[in-house]
Amino acid sequence: MTVKRYLPFASAVLLTTVSAVAFASEPWSMPGEEAIEPYTPSAANAGAQPFAGDQMFQAFGGQAGVARIVTDLLDRSFADARISDIFKGHDRVRLQRVLVEQFCFLLGGPCAYSGRDMATAHKDMGVQPGDMNALVENLQLAMEEEGIPFQTQNRFLAKLAPMKRDIVDK
């Protein structure tokens, strides 16, 4: 009886503590990642509105599927002679984490994006239009590998495409 009565309160306290811990390790200096300039985390940083519902997230195989796609995307891009120079020297641990967060969030999954906005994240990288297309090709291959149907891939790419304006020639 008593336990039941205090359960909501207890969970609230627990949740607060968990988020406090999450904020304590700031998203710009996470353990195992190279620290970067502090910034204000915001859902708007993800660069697009997420899909409504979680059908897209499920179609992408949930958290595990998204993680595999991002791993494959980065494997391909770090090894891709066309764009490996851009990736070389970048913190892959952080990149993997924020990309999984971003994809999961945009696909309607239960994730928050803690990374920077696209313009800041790609500032002075010198990404050219062809580089962006090369990355898209790698993402297409990674999604194919995961068995995502082509039209479903395109729905996701349609979300990402306008980010080109904040990524290329910055």
Partner: peptide, 9 residues
């Protein structure tokens, strides 16, 4: 315009 990338316009 950009037929391919302007997906939000």
């Amino acid at each position: 315009g950009d037929a391919v990338y302007d997906q939000d316009r």
